Simulated assay, not measured.
Amino acid sequence: MSPPRHSSGLPAPRLARTILIAALLGYALFTTTTVLSTGVSPTAKTAGVLLLLAVLALQFVHSAPGGSRALLPQKCLTLGIQTLLTYLPLVVFHAPWGTVSGYLAGSVLLLLPPPVAWPLYGITGLSMLTPPVLEGRPLIDGIHLAETSLLTGLVVYGLTRLTELITQLHAARGELARQAVATERQRFARDLHDLLGFSLSAITLKSELIHRLIPAHPARAMKEINEVLSIAGQSLADVRKVASGFRDMSLQQEIKTARSMLDAAGIDVRTEVRLGALSLQVDTALATTLREAVTNLLRHSDASRCSIRAVQQEGLVRLVVENDGVDPAYHDPSPHGGSGLGNLHARMTAVGGRLESGPGTDGTFRVLAEVPAKKPQETTAEVRQIMFPPNGSAA
Rank of each mutant, 00 (worst) to 15 (best):
T130S: 07
P131N: 07
P131W: 00
P131H: 04
P131G: 01
P131A: 08
P131R: 08
P131E: 00
P132D: 03
P132M: 04
P132W: 03
P132E: 01
P132R: 04
V133G: 00
V133T: 11
L134Q: 12
L134W: 13
L134K: 08
L134S: 04
E135P: 03
E135A: 15
E135S: 14
G136T: 02
G136A: 02
G136F: 03
G136I: 01
R137E: 08
R137V: 00
R137F: 04
R137I: 00
R137T: 01
R137G: 00
R137H: 10
P138Q: 13
P138M: 06
P138Y: 07
P138T: 14
P138V: 12
P138N: 13
L139C: 01
L139R: 11
L139P: 00
L139Q: 09
L139I: 15
L139Y: 13
L139D: 06
I140V: 12
I140L: 06
I140T: 14
I140K: 03
D141N: 02
D141K: 00
G142C: 07
G142H: 06
G142K: 08
I143L: 14
I143A: 11
I143C: 04
I143S: 02
I143H: 02
H144W: 01
H144D: 00
H144Q: 06
H144I: 08
H144K: 07
H144P: 01
L145N: 14
L145D: 15
L145H: 12
L145C: 07
L145Y: 11
A146N: 07
A146L: 04
E147H: 10
E147W: 09
E147F: 11
T148Q: 09
T148S: 13
S149P: 02
S149Y: 10
S149T: 15
L150F: 02
L150K: 06
L150R: 08
L150N: 03
L150V: 10
L151V: 15
L151C: 10
L151Y: 05
T152M: 03
T152N: 09
T152F: 03
T152V: 05
T152S: 12
G153I: 07
G153K: 03
G153C: 06
L154N: 05
L154E: 08
L154V: 15
L154P: 03
L154Y: 04
L154Q: 11
V155E: 07
V155D: 06
V155W: 05
V155P: 00
V156D: 01
V156Q: 08
V156H: 03
V156L: 05
Y157V: 12
Y157A: 15
Y157M: 14
G158L: 10
G158N: 11
G158P: 00
G158H: 10
G158Q: 11
L159Y: 07
L159F: 10
L159I: 12
L159C: 04
T160A: 15
T160M: 08
T160E: 13
R161P: 00
R161L: 10
R161W: 01
R161E: 13
R161T: 14
R161V: 13
L162F: 14
L162K: 08
T163N: 14
T163K: 05
T163I: 07
T163E: 15
T163S: 15
T163F: 04
E164Y: 06
E164Q: 13
E164D: 15
L165V: 14
L165M: 09
L165S: 10
